[in-house]
């Protein structure tokens, strides 16, 4: 039987980040381990609530764990870095704290109780174990293009949920190299993009974007690659306040292009097509 993964989309993937979902679905199908969307799920809350007494904001993530449990699954996979971080932190809190789990189950009307048996993964956890499959799937190596990987915060911090070394991650670099890309060492790859300040303090985000993009460009980047819908929005949209015009790709978009798959690329503010044509990747 073909292996598949139970996929948790979250609030942004169907609309603003549809380019990510579209390309990730196609890439995982091609790699032979398709993402199957959960039958039911709840918004994770986007940011983790960090106070000791706040059980209330853990409810939605744990309801999603109950949905997975109800489907008879013990793993869920996210594409969004923020969903990964929040679901993982909330789930770990329940696994590590019996009293919190008991309080949660008393409150939830879900039946049966959550047993703490679901694990939360990010797409990178899956891709890391599929290097051979990725290499075999590459039909059009993306040669002559220099990219800067960007991790941001939510994949790497806090360290108990990090998908790789907190200060020196390499997961993304390893995958991008398989696609034929030239991957540079991006000095700002683990610094925050400004996150939710984009709502009411865009001045702060613009400074973060200027700092991150200017350093990537200085190193020779022609594009930035990432996996978080909020980082993508901030780095893409807010470059309008800078002198730069660097396309910001989801990693699955570049994977799909190297696999020879048609993808949408509809939501980019900085259209990546001229760069892709210049590199002979698109006609």
């Amino acid at each position: 039987m073909e292996k598949s993964h139970l996929y948790y989309p979250g609030c942004t993937m169907k609309t603003k980040a549809s380019d990510y979902e579209d390309s990730a679905m196609k890439v995982m199908e091609k790699l032979g381990e398709p993402l199957i969307e959960m039958e039911d799920w709840y918004c994770c809350g986007a940011v983790q609530s960090l106070t000791e007494d706040d059980i209330m904001h853990q409810i939605a993530p744990i309801r999603t764990m109950c949905c997975a449990q109800e489907q008879g699954e013990d793993e869920i996979v996210t594409l969004c870095d923020m969903c990964y971080n929040v679901l993982r932190q909330a789930n770990d809190r329940m696994k590590e704290n019996e009293d919190d789990l008991e309080t949660m189950n008393e409150f939830l009307d879900e039946d049966p109780d959550y047993d703490g048996g679901v694990e939360v993964y990010h797409l990178f956890h899956i891709l890391e174990g599929m290097k051979e499959e990725i290499e075999d799937a590459v039909e059009n190596p993306l040669e002559d293009m220099v990219v800067a990987p960007y991790y941001g915060c939510m994949l790497l911090r806090p360290d108990n949920v990090a998908i790789d070394e907190t200060e020196d991650p390499e997961i993304m670099e390893g995958i991008l190299e398989l696609l034929g890309l030239e991957v540079l060492e991006n000095p700002k790859r683990t610094e925050c993009c400004g996150s939710y300040h984009t709502v009411n303090r865009s001045d702060i985000v613009e400074k973060r974007v200027e700092d991150i993009v200017s350093h990537a460009v200085k190193e020779g980047a022609e594009a930035i690659v990432l996996s978080c819908p909020l980082c993508q929005f901030n780095l893409d949209f807010n470059q309008r306040a800078t002198e730069f015009d660097v396309p910001v790709f989801y990693i699955t978009e570049l994977m799909a292009l190297s696999f020879g798959l048609d993808i949408e690329m509809k939501k980019h503010k900085i259209d990546p097509r001229s760069l892709l044509k210049e590199k002979g990747i698109l006609e």
Binding site: G10, A46, M82, Y196, N200, F233
Partner: peptide
């Protein structure tokens, strides 16, 4: 124009 997770995150914080 804003992605949902930015708005949710901001209002949560």
């Amino acid at each position: 124009e804003l992605p949902q997770l930015a708005v949710v995150g901001c209002f949560r914080k």
